[in-house]
């Protein structure tokens, strides 16, 4: 397993503490090495991989695969019972409830109208967020890729919001946007009238998208910046020698060469937009009314927040959402593989 003789080699003239640390290290290695070597003799070198994978697999299974399995069971069982064996089998009833719509374009005509409102809002949110996020991230990455002053500071500044918890982000912006918040104080100080951002549906959705873009654009900017920096500088110099105008450099060289990174960003943004919950929930609570209610919020409320907790219906909605995310993830993986190739 380990070359102990190599590990125990001490540099000539090493100090006493260094030699002690070296000895201690050798002892620790020997402690781990002996049982592993015995195990390897028993199961063979090739099967050792399963042994090393097992802890992660058990952890993953316990907290990912088992809940998925439970969720599937819940989605085809009814009643208020928590344990699966206490829940009667109802087949596809919950899926039928979700799908029961006069017109899918009109949530009012649906039995689970909040679910379809959530779907509609999530689609609107995703579409606007996709355009805004990719546009802003691309613009920022292009700017940060130039030889500007304090480039390192700006890179850190744009990335900083990514490090914040979504709840903290939402609370900060709630404080800014509420009726007596910072923004309204600025508006009234400059002679304007207060705007009730969380009362008007259009404004609420706008700020939901804005805050989400503000919080996450640093991450996507970083991906695009990495892509931009991977474009060899001499390609731009060749373009300069070829007499290429800046706009043409952007459209004919930069964007096509950045396209693999852009595709990855597009899919990642879409996946995250479909999953959106915490920021919007804390910022608007899904309101006004159901104007910013997203699918995940519907699932959360149906399962845990409503007076009658309907785990079955929430699980069925989760499975549908999971299916969509699964497709998007496959797409992202395929794109990543194509990029690597």
């Amino acid at each position: 397993m380990t070359d102990r003789s190599a590990l125990s080699r001490e540099p000539a003239g090493a100090s006493l503490p260094a030699r002690l640390v070296e000895r201690l290290w050798d002892g620790l290695i020997a402690l781990v090495d002996a049982p592993l070597a015995a195990l390897q003799r028993l199961v063979g070198a090739e099967r050792m991989a399963y042994f090393f994978l097992a802890p992660n697999l058990i952890f993953f299974g316990l907290f990912v695969f088992v809940p998925i399995g439970i969720c599937i069971v819940y989605s085809v069982t009814g009643g208020a019972g928590i344990f699966p064996f206490a829940r009667p089998y109802v087949g596809a009833q919950h899926y039928a409830t979700l799908a029961d719509c006069g017109s899918y374009l009109d949530p009012h005509s649906c039995q689970a109208d909040h679910f379809w409102r959530g779907v509609r809002n999530t689609l609107i949110f995703s579409a606007f967020q996709l355009v805004a996020m990719v546009g802003v991230s691309l613009f920022t990455a292009l700017a940060l890729n130039r030889d500007i002053r304090a480039r390192g500071f700006f890179r850190a500044a744009f990335f900083f919001p990514v490090l914040l918890s979504p709840v903290v982000v939402a609370l900060i912006w709630k404080w800014i946007l509420q009726r007596d918040g910072l923004l309204n104080a600025a508006i009234t100080a400059s002679g304007g009238q207060k705007i009730l951002f969380f009362v008007e549906p259009g404004w609420a959705m706008f700020w939901a998208v804005f805050v989400s873009v503000w919080a996450h654009m640093g991450f996507y900017t970083l991906i695009l910046l990495a892509g931009l920096q991977a474009i060899p500088r001499d390609i731009y110099e060749a373009a300069e020698m070829d007499g290429t105008k800046p706009l043409r450099v952007l459209t004919r060289l930069t964007l096509p060469l950045l396209w693999p990174n852009l595709l990855v960003v597009l899919v990642l943004v879409l996946i995250r937009a479909v999953q959106t919950f915490d920021e919007v929930f804390v910022l608007t609570g899904g309101g006004p009314g159901t104007a910013t209610l997203m699918v995940v919020q519907f699932i959360y409320e149906t399962a845990f927040a409503n007076q009658t907790q309907n785990f079955g219906l929430a699980s069925a909605a989760s499975i549908l959402l999971g299916g969509l995310l699964f497709v998007l993830t496959l797409l992202q993986l395929a794109l990543a593989r194509r990029k690597a190739a």
């Binding site: 060899p232 001499d234 110099e237 060749a238 373009a239 020698m241 007499g243 096509p256 060469l257």
Partner: peptide, 28 residues
């Protein structure tokens, strides 16, 4: 550089990787 009317062959070739040979030559 673009105004000097010179052409340069780079050590790394600096070809546009997403364009065909024809497009590379025709670009300028």
């Amino acid at each position: 550089a673009s105004e000097r009317g010179l052409a340069m062959v780079f050590q790394s070739y600096a070809l546009y990787p997403h364009m065909s040979v024809r497009q590379n030559i025709a670009f300028a």
